[in-house]
Design a binder for these strands. Structure first.
Length: 203
DNA sequence: CAATAGATCATCT
DNA sequence: GATGATCTATTGC
């Protein structure tokens, strides 16, 4: 585990949808820069507090490691689109596609701090006792925000799933550590959290 | 609090 | 036919 000190974004319009070029970079950079941004779907949204980078063909833990298939095709497409996959027979997880077309980097959104449409999210996650249980995990946040495989391939700049600049953000530090729930490349420090944030999937 | 079992199915071998 | 970028409930200290 390591701590990375960040600067507040030099120039950002609060609430503005992130531009395509934000995503057209390496997944490791995008994963860190997504922290503190807003993930918005329809009437729900929150602050991204935990992400993981997946490095495509270079990364045995990535769904794209063995090349394009019907499932992972959007990861090889243009940046700034959603890759939503179904896992464990039960859950869906959202990624944002990075890198230029042809390269398959992606960032898994692992946890969100609920901010918009909290009541609606509560009804979708009736088992969640505390606010911090609503979206503190990749499978939980898709349920809370109504994100399904129907959004696989959706454009994050023009669909009703978007990522936006922070409204009013305090400076924060980033903690890096090993990714969760994988067996290959398990020691690569590609999981990033807002240091000390209580809405992450685990401390 | 930590460890473990069970749910459940699309995808790939 | 096995596995998996998970979650919840339950069991055991």
């Amino acid at each position: 585990m390591s701590i990375i000190t960040t600067q507040p974004p030099a120039r950002s319009q609060p609430g503005r949808i992130l531009p395509r070029r934000f995503y057209a970079r390496g997944a490791t950079d995008v994963a860190q820069d997504l922290l503190g941004k807003y993930l918005i779907h329809q009437d729900t949204g929150g602050i991204i507090v935990e992400t993981e980078a997946y490095l495509g063909l270079k990364d045995a833990a990535s769904h794209a490691y063995c090349g394009p298939t019907d499932r992972n095709r959007v990861m090889f497409g243009p940046p700034g689109h959603a890759y939503v996959y179904f896992i464990y027979g039960m859950y869906e997880c959202v990624n944002v596609v990075c890198e230029k077309k042809g390269e398959a980097g992606a960032v898994l959104i692992r946890a969100v701090e609920p901010r918009i449409g909290i009541e609606l999210m509560r009804t979708r996650r009736p088992g969640a006792k505390r606010l911090r249980d609503i979206a503190s995990g990749p499978g939980k946040l898709t349920i809370a925000m109504g994100i399904t495989r129907a959004l696989n391939g959706a454009d994050l700049l023009t669909s009703d799933l978007t990522v936006r600049e922070a409204i009013a953000s305090e400076p924060f530090e980033i903690t890096a550590g090993p990714r969760i729930g994988i067996t290959k490349c398990a020691d690569w420090p590609l999981r990033f959290t807002i240091t000390g944030n209580e809405f992450v999937s685990r401390l």
